[in-house]
């Protein structure tokens, strides 16, 4: 009753991955090395810096983003709590991984979002791929990723990027398409080139939406840290994993708390920045 299409698909994919590894292994390795160099550098910096310096940096960044002293202080206290949980080192590793993963997501996601906003064809191609990326269980692509890059941080980053980039692409696309048509037209009427319109009008006006996308991407990347640890990334995810493996719910909870705290810090800070970007929409009193 059911013709077997499963076996040929699986075989073909296996052959394809084999072929990639044999023919293009060097290429993937060089990418992996590049990413690794950046990641290690960031991780080293974060871990070797004295915690008070990092705490101060958190405060300054949060204040710069929000222009709100209270929020800055609150973020510092939260970061300090992570240290109190005994997970400072792990947190720094996780943050390094996040910075690289979110960085890659931004570099890929915003241009793809712009492309989708501009071309109906591009959107028709990109959208189903995004649906696929968001629904397919991450283990499915972790297998070939681990085969291509080996176990460790790089496939962890890859998996994080695949999982976390779609909302940024979608929100960039949406943000640009929602820019008031009248404003774009006025800009055209003054002879602005497509690039000038994009840089001077569409991106700035879509920025709140893009910031929302970056925020979501970061949250989703954080949600991936446990899975990332399963293929060898270090950090807080590992703590959770250890709790799981050793039947130690207390340790698992500590890891979970630390992840939540990081999420709150990223979320509050980026939300405050996003809100400040929209200040022009409000009437000053």
């Amino acid at each position: 009753m059911f013709p077997d299409i499963g076996t040929p698909i699986a075989d073909t994919v296996n052959q394809f991955v084999e072929w990639l590894i044999v023919e293009h292994g060097a290429f993937f390795e060089s990418i992996a090395n590049g990413v690794l160099v950046v990641l290690v550098a960031i991780e080293q910096t974060l871990r070797s810096a004295p915690p008070p310096v990092i705490l101060a940096a958190v405060g300054v960044i949060a204040f710069a983003a929000s222009r709100n002293v209270l929020l800055g202080l609150a973020m510092v206290v939260l970061a300090w709590l992570v240290g109190c949980l005994g997970l400072w080192e792990q947190a720094m590793q996780t943050v390094a991984l996040l910075i690289v993963a979110v960085g890659i997501s931004i570099v890929l996601g915003i241009p793809l979002g712009v492309l989708a906003a501009r071309s109906r064809i591009a959107r028709a191609v990109i959208n189903p791929i995004l649906d696929l990326m968001q629904t397919i269980p991450s283990f499915v692509y972790l297998i070939p990723a681990a085969m291509l890059f080996g176990l460790g941080k790089v496939p962890a980053i890859l998996a994080t990027v695949i999982y976390a980039t779609p909302p940024l692409i979608r929100l960039t696309d949406l943000g640009i398409r929602q820019v008031d048509h009248d404003v774009v037209e006025a800009s055209r009427a003054f002879g602005a080139t497509r690039g000038q319109i994009l840089r001077g009008v569409q991106i700035p006006l879509a920025l709140p939406s893009i910031m929302q996308g970056i925020n979501q991407t970061t949250m989703m990347a954080l949600a991936m840290v446990v899975i990332a640890s399963m293929i060898g990334a270090r950090g807080i995810g590992e703590t959770v994993l250890i709790g799981l493996q050793r039947n130690d719910p207390g340790t698992g909870l500590l890891g979970g708390l630390a992840i939540v705290i990081l999420a709150v810090i990223f979320d509050r800070t980026s939300q405050a920045y996003g809100a400040r970007l929209q200040a022009y929409r409000r009437v000053r009193s």
Partner: peptide
């Protein structure tokens, strides 16, 4: 458009 024309819009079209 840059050199020859300038336009005022019914719905303003200002850059917010």
């Amino acid at each position: 458009r840059r050199e020859k024309t300038a336009m005022v819009f019914q719905r303003f079209g200002l850059l917010p």
